[in-house]
Design a protein around this nucleic acid. Structure first.
Length: 917
DNA sequence: GTGGTCACG
DNA sequence: ACGTACGTGACCACA
């Protein structure tokens, strides 16, 4: 068996991968789809071909040798989209990391390099395989040189293989004659002109007959059809030039050694790291874990499993400097803890023997208290007067020389709130939260893991990720089967939290987010922890009977729908429903989604008046949602204490809002009466009532303030109905004569502005034409003249800096603004307009929460904050404290920020959430 | 695991 | 010409 070399046309395959696959990005927004596709094709081909040598050729940007000869015929190619362009260096980096021979040559195209290497290898007695997406390469095919062309058909990649024989079968001409074909028919993609009036059919006929353009020209008078003959007569020079253009150079002066091209182990450590960075999770499995040598900490981990040792350890931690801690938990059970006394001495303390869960958590709580007591200064009390965007302002936690006071003693953890879950106290304590810090520094990531943090903030340091230490095991399984891995995991987490403090704090300062971190997010951890711990009481029996009532009606509707459809089908399946409605029953309203027909409510609502079945479906949907998500869903989340303890996540949203999970208590129905009734099962405990306070139009007020638009500010100062006011101005009617429709439309425009207005979006929302929507928007901008400049400024700022900021300095990166794709870039522009507004409103309510929480605590009240729903706070209020708590809510919410328009708060009281809203 | 749908601000 | 409102999370069906 002779040896084989695999030659790859780099740009061409990258291109193919880019267009063949959906646009993939990692959690940081980096485009990676083409690189991913490239690697898959590469691995697959290597497995199939089993070559001994491998080389990838790339074009350089400079004009190529062949095309240089004919300056006039270059430069009409479409520019490469930005999403693809940025992946070119990435694939080269990846190939280099895998030890793959990458060849480029000034003045030559990848084709020429491949052609040259193919001939050279053939001459040396080898087989060669060329992988490319470009059919031009077919001219290189011989018995020994095979061309492989990947094709994407309906999402699946198939590869067509061509030896000389297959070229002849498919094109009726020999591989070298492919050049002759091109000379006649041209190739617009390659800027080869060919000769006019000759396409594939005619060209093939001529070349089959005469073999070459020269020979055909010699027999010019015999040529058929007439059109081709005359074209050839007139444009023969063009054919010759095209032939030269189409000919791939097979003797380029390139430096090449088989030594370098030898195919070695692709699964190197460097490649592994890169794959991990790009989040190619499927590819990671290919790497032999033994081959991936991790950068282990120089220091050792110690395990401390006896009581005396543990006591000594905590004593040392309390007496010493800032410590890092981690807690290994699962489903509420604690398995052990990591404790980093400093960056060298790191301990793992398993829960076993004398060390019980209660004991260990107690020691951790003690440590937190001791550290906090020794440093009351560092307990982050929400002093919001200091929360300013301008870094020139006096800042409480930065010394006058600009250095940070972060070195005050505290306890560091990756997720402080998770730690607090296992600690009784909900008093604010001196902590550093690496997860929250990492979130502020880049809120676009989907998760914040210690290995990523180490890589980003500890000079590229590589630590083994959880999966490498524990595999896919649950903590409980790892506890039984790989205690060592669990110990290492705990230690790495404690270490990373500790080690990241300095670099992260400096980064927060350098990005102007130190105040957001210390004055908003840090105190918020304790506020949220308290809310989670209190939870909210739910009447489970009433919830169940509500669900049963729904079931009855759902059953009726189901029967009715099936009857009208003439068959039984799964109403919950959009796919089946689409077929029933639009094919079987022939409703109009064709395709919408890539998988079939859209049956979304806004489509169905348009059909409802005409078809009774659609009305029933809409009602069914509504009820099914209420039952599955709310009735049944919430029942399953009620804890033993009869309360629901949702988790408020602080590191999820791109804008700075918090989110709520398991269950989500931020989307409990309110708009429709039937759903709104669910709120009756949320009740305060005996002797308490609910006070519900929500900001009135906080986002529009923020917009008024940030834009500085006097007209909008004035409107608010006069305490006008803002939507009516807008309608009056936009539609040029007296304030008192604004119709309901006009007000509704103006309200939609106000929303649109906050979302990053587009005439299309507005027209969809209002069911009006785009033109009308555009007019509304234009008149809106005339009404409030500074708004447009403000929004345009945000987009400009975003494009220039790559991010936008809130009033308090919170950042949102917007990589989409640099996209070459119109849709993505437009999205980026809307985000640039929306994020500072939504984010500032989020900052304000977070500040308000902290202030309310602190007041309730400071004034020793029994009332407690239990929920936040973006612009709304729910307080379970002790009946005796109602006047005091109302005053606190009003004061602290209004006083959370000083804007040029008042922050207005609406407040209601009730014996359940329904009444209080 | 992904897409469609729908609940909220 | 492109094909959209901004930000979330839960449930279901279906590959």
């Amino acid at each position: 068996m002779s040896e084989k070399i695999l030659l790859i046309d780099g740009h061409s395959i990258l291109n193919r991968a880019f267009y063949g696959l959906p646009d993939l990005t990692n959690s940081e927004g980096k485009h990676t789809g083409a690189v991913y596709g490239f690697l898959n094709i590469l691995f697959r081909t290597i497995e199939e071909e089993k070559p001994q040598y491998l080389t990838v050729a790339f074009d350089l940007k400079a004009p190529t040798f062949r095309h240089k000869m004919f300056e006039a015929y270059k430069g009409t190619r479409k520019p490469m989209p930005e999403e693809l362009r940025e992946q070119v260096p990435l694939i080269k980096e990846m190939l280099t990391a895998m030890g793959v021979n990458v060849v480029t040559k000034e003045g030559y195209e990848a084709d020429d390099i491949l052609g040259t290497l193919a001939r050279k290898s053939e001459a040396a007695g080898m087989d060669a395989t060329i992988l490319s997406g470009d059919r031009d390469l077919l001219q290189l095919a011989t018995d020994k040189v095979m061309i492989r062309l990947p094709k994407t058909v309906r999402g699946k990649t198939t590869i067509e293989d061509y030896h000389a024989q297959q070229v002849i079968e498919k094109y009726q001409v020999t591989p070298p004659q492919i050049i002759e074909l091109k000379a006649l028919m041209g190739d617009s993609a390659d800027n080869i002109p060919g000769i006019p009036g000759v396409g594939e059919k005619t060209a093939t006929k001529i070349i089959v007959e005469y073999g070459s353009i020269e020979n055909a020209h010699e027999h010019l008078e015999e040529l058929k059809p007439n059109r081709a003959r005359e074209s050839m007569r007139e444009h023969y020079d063009m054919a010759q030039m095209s032939k030269a253009l189409a000919t791939i150079c097979t003797d380029s002066p390139i430096e090449f050694s088989y030594e370098k091209a030898k195919l070695g182990n692709l699964y190197t450590k460097e490649a592994f790291l890169l794959c991990r960075q790009l989040e190619f999770k499927n590819l990671l499995n290919r790497f032999d874990s033994a081959a991936v040598q991790e950068d282990t900490l120089e220091q050792e981990f110690f395990t401390c499993a006896d009581l005396a040792g543990c006591e000594a350890l905590f004593a040392k931690a309390e007496a010493g400097k800032t410590a890092g801690v981690s807690l290994v938990t699962e489903n509420g059970r604690v398995f052990g803890a990591g404790l980093a006394l400093n960056e060298e001495e790191i301990y793992y303390i398993p829960v076993e023997g004398m060390i019980t869960e209660g004991y260990l958590c107690g020691k951790l709580e003690g440590l937190l208290h001791k550290v906090s007591e020794s440093n009351t200064e560092n307990i982050m009390k929400s002093n919001t007067d200091d929360v300013k965007k301008d870094p020139e302002n006096e800042i409480s936690d930065v010394n006058t020389d600009g250095t940070l006071k972060y070195d005050k003693k505290c306890v560091c953890a990756l997720d402080v709130k998770a730690l607090l879950k296992h600690i009784k106290s909900d008093d604010p304590m001196a902590v550093f939260d690496a997860g929250v810090a990492a979130y502020l520094l880049n809120p676009l990531k989907s998760s914040y893991t210690y290995d990523d943090m180490a890589k980003e903030y500890l000079n590229g340091r590589i630590l083994p990720a959880r999966e490498e230490l524990l595999g896919k095991k649950t903590v409980e399984k790892a506890w039984e089967e790989s205690a060592e891995g669990l110990a290492a995991w705990a230690c790495y987490m404690a270490y990373t939290a500790l080690a990241c403090r300095k670099p992260m704090c400096e980064a927060l300062r350098d990005t102007g987010m130190w105040n957001v971190y210390t004055q908003i997010e840090l105190p918020l951890i304790f506020t949220l922890d308290s809310m989670e711990k209190w939870g909210i009481s739910v009447k489970s029996e009433e919830l169940k009977s509500y669900g049963e009532k729904l079931s009855v009606r759902i059953g009726e509707l189901e029967k009715q729908i099936w009857q009208q459809a003439g068959e039984e089908f799964n109403i919950n399946s959009p796919k089946q429903m689409g077929v029933i409605l639009f094919e079987k029953l022939g409703l109009k309203g064709g395709k919408k989604t890539k998988t079939g027909y859209s049956t979304a409510a806004d489509i169905l609502e348009k059909l409802a008046p005409e078809y009774p079945i659609v009305k029933d479906i809409l009602e069914y949907r509504q009820l099914a949602k209420l039952k599955s998500t709310y009735a049944d869903g919430l029942v399953g989340e009620i804890a033993e204490d009869g309360r629901i303890h949702s988790t408020f996540n602080q590191t999820i949203t791109a804008t700075g809002r918090i989110s709520s999970t398991e269950p989500n208590l931020q989307n409990i129905p309110v708009r429709m009466e039937l759903g709104r009734l669910i709120r009756k099962v949320f009740v305060p405990e005996e002797g308490y009532v609910f006070l519900d306070a929500d900001y009135s139009q906080i986002e529009l007020r923020v917009l008024a303030h940030m834009s500085g638009d006097e007209k909008l500010i004035q409107a608010y100062k006069e305490a006008q109905d803002i939507h009516r006011h807008t309608a009056s101005e936009v539609f040029h009617v007296p304030f008192d004569e604004v119709t309901d429709l006009q007000r509704r439309n103006a309200k939609a425009v106000n929303f649109g502005i906050v979302y990053g207005i587009s005439s299309f979006g507005l027209s969809q929302d209002l069911s009006i034409t785009r033109k009308e929507a555009a007019e509304y928007i234009e008149r809106y901008f005339e009404t409030y003249p500074k708004i447009k400049g403000f929004l345009d400024g945000l987009v400009e700022e975003g494009k220039e800096k790559g991010y936008v900021t809130t009033m308090f300095g919170r950042r949102r990166p917007i990589p989409e603004l640099k996209s070459g794709n119109f849709m993505q870039r437009s999205f980026g522009e809307r985000v640039a307009m929306n994020s500072p507004i939504q984010g500032t409103a989020a900052d304000i309510i977070k500040i308000a929460m902290n202030r309310v929480y602190r007041r309730l605590k400071d004034e020793n009240l029994k009332s407690r904050l239990v929920l936040q729903v973006h612009d709304e706070l729910l307080i379970e209020t002790c009946k005796e404290e109602i006047p005091q708590v109302s005053a606190i809510l009003e004061e602290e919410m209004k006083g959370a920020a000083k804007l040029s328009v008042e922050l207005e708060v609406d407040m209601h009281q009730g014996n359940n959430w329904y009444e209080a809203k």
